[in-house]
């Protein structure tokens, strides 16, 4: 949009000798702007507002996390991360992601495949259902699992008779995380697969491929970058989830505390450098995810589209 306006404006002084013709058109052309454009002042104001807001709400807190974490020096920082409870929290967070992400990968692929390639009754209902975790508060999600699997719940007594712990143990935390991160992969794949249609698969099958071969050799390569992108987002959220996990965790130090929960515990114990050290690790994970995501967009932008924003 800038390009439409500026060359004319800067060219005007050079064209002074041939005043008559240009002057008549120049003011009109200068005032012309793309119907969707804004005046430079408005544009600058909008950009400044967006940047200031981002700086204040995103960048400043992020920088502060690292400043606070390193306040006591690198030694304190590393000692905080090497604490057995912190290590247990890191391990648990990785374990829960290692369960939740593959589960949602398989589910997301199945759901996207079903929605994009077939027509069936209740399809739009299924799409709505997939979005449900985005609209339900994570705390409610956690409470639902307590209500189902807790010892006062529907399945709780049977489970505890059989020695199976779900809530206040790793399975409950994994379930709550799966619930919350449920839509990420599916949401990434559905629009892309819908647009790609079934043409490629039809061609493969008409050439003699089995259904599985068509999926493995045609569908999967077509969506691989979007799939990876979805997995990254899913992973970032799985590692960072607080609300739902907090409800089903039971907050047992070193056992059922994930990294976000451990940050809260440390903060509540006045262990500020340690709290911020663990928080900075979470922030680093988020930054690494962002970096990977940007890298993917840059290298394989075409393979990711069309995409709906989150």
């Amino acid at each position: 949009m800038r390009r439409n306006v500026e060359p004319v404006a800067s060219a005007a002084p050079l064209d002074r000798p041939a005043k008559s013709g240009l002057e008549a058109r120049d003011p009109a052309r200068r005032r012309w702007q793309a119907p969707t454009g804004e005046r430079p002042a408005v544009r600058r104001l909008l950009i400044a507002a967006a940047l200031a807001f981002l700086g204040f709400v995103l960048v400043l807190p992020l920088v502060l996390v690292f400043v606070e974490a390193l306040k006591g020096g690198v030694g304190v920082y590393l000692a905080a991360l090497a604490d057995p409870d912190a290590l247990a929290a890191i391990r648990l967070t990785l374990l829960v992601s290692a369960i939740a992400v593959p589960a949602n990968l398989v589910f997301g692929l199945c759901a996207a495949w079903a929605i994009a390639k077939f027509d069936f009754v209740g399809k739009s209902f299924l799409i709505t259902l997939i979005d449900l975790p985005f609209s339900v508060s994570p705390v409610v999600a956690g409470l639902v699992f307590v209500l189902i699997f807790g010892s006062q719940g529907a399945l709780g007594p049977w489970l505890s008779d059989h020695g199976i712990d779900v809530v206040f143990a790793v399975p409950g935390i994994a379930l709550a995380t799966i619930f919350v991160t449920f839509p990420f992969v599916a949401r990434e794949l559905i629009p892309l697969m819908q647009e790609q249609g079934t043409g490629d698969e039809e061609a493969a099958i008409s050439l003699g491929a089995s259904g599985l071969q068509a999926f493995r050799l045609v569908t999967l390569p077509n969506v691989r970058w979007a799939l990876l992108y979805g997995v990254l987002l899913c992973n970032a959220r799985a590692m960072g989830e607080f609300g739902a996990v907090s409800v089903v965790s039971g907050h047992i130090r070193g056992v059922t505390d994930t990294m976000p929960l451990h940050v809260e515990i440390l903060y509540n114990e006045y262990a500020f450098p340690a709290a911020f050290a663990v928080a900075s690790l979470l922030a680093l994970l988020a930054l690494a995810t962002l970096l990977l995501k940007s890298l993917l967009e840059w290298r394989h932008g075409g393979g990711l589209k069309p995409r709906r924003g989150h």
Partner: peptide, 20 residues
């Protein structure tokens, strides 16, 4: 020895719900 801390009422609720 493992510890779990929180508001007393909320902690009691968790034990009722099966915190071991």
């Amino acid at each position: 020895i493992r510890m779990s801390h929180g508001g007393s009422g909320a902690q009691a609720r968790a034990v009722v719900d099966g915190l071991d």
